[in-house]
Nucleic acid binder design. Structure first.
Lengths: 150, 150
DNA sequence: TCTTATTGGTTGCATATGCAACTATAATAT
DNA sequence: ATATTATAGTTGCATATGCAACCAATAAGA
């Protein structure tokens, strides 16, 4: 059994990350709501679809991109479909599959959400970095994330 | 109206942060579950209470520390109370207030959760930093968080 | 003091999420 | 080909969260 203790710096780094992300995403949700816009999760999938060729992705692949498990993808797509932001079509190459396809209305909503989202990123996140720091930060973050690619 | 564009690096930093934190907290929840332990949110409040003098805090203050709004604090404390991990007492100095007080059972549970939590932090977070980087990282994160201290 | 506004906390109802079971199709094995 | 197993997606039920309304007590104003 190992030491089981974190140094003060280690604690600061970890707790800091948790709280930072919580503050930031709270702020994003807050601003979206204040502007009468849907939650961030909607933006997240609309963006992935918007970027995808043909504006469509299989639910499964979409789930991996936005880090949602399958039942939550199903239901999120339910809601978006109900609002006419995506359509849900049969997958041509796999009889089990479904693809979500972003509609023009969906693309427009994403565009409308972006400025609000953008301003939070700019004001509360990017503004806190000096020029060199951003690169450093990316390096750390990438290392962490690379563990989770598969 | 400004530019509304992020550079590739800015995007990487932001999206990286979001995904990193999502991966890491998913992993924490995962490991806790795998070990038959309650969710992270329980740990978070048990820790704050454990650190507090007398092991107790006003619900309101607790909420600020764990970044939960009041109704969620009420309900989280409901659940912890039901399990005998905290008691909910009247606040001596304010007739409106309530304090949550951690029980011995609560302290023990926190201790039991710690190694599981610790190992995720160690293995998936700290292990990714070279020595100098941690300090850099803290600096960035602190800047971000300092905006939100009221 | 008496009235009004604020604050701390709780609750009902609507929505969102987790879990396990289920259907249908596809991939693998014999 | 047939049987088995795995994968994609959905659904019912239980739990958790958000929102607005609420109660009770303190604080602020006239």
């Amino acid at each position: 059994m190992a030491n089981l203790k974190l140094t003060p710096d280690e604690t600061k780094a970890w707790m800091g990350l948790i709280k930072a992300q919580q503050h930031l995403t709270d702020k994003v949700e807050d601003e979206l709501k204040k502007n009468g816009l849907p939650p961030y999760s909607w933006y997240d999938v609309l963006l992935e679809l918007d970027k995808a060729p043909d504006g469509s992705l299989r639910l499964n692949d979409l789930g991996k991109k936005v880090l949602l498990n399958k039942y939550n993808v199903t239901r999120l797509i339910d809601r978006l479909e109900k609002e006419g932001l995506v359509s849900r079509d049969a997958c041509p190459v796999d009889g089990r599959g479904k693809v979500a396809c972003i509609t023009p209305k969906g693309r427009m909503l994403r565009q409308k959400m972006w400025p609000v989202y953008y301003s939070v990123i700019k004001e509360h996140f990017l503004s806190q970095f000096s020029t060199g720091q951003l690169g450093q930060f990316i390096e750390c973050i990438d290392r962490i994330n690379s563990q989770f690619k598969n």
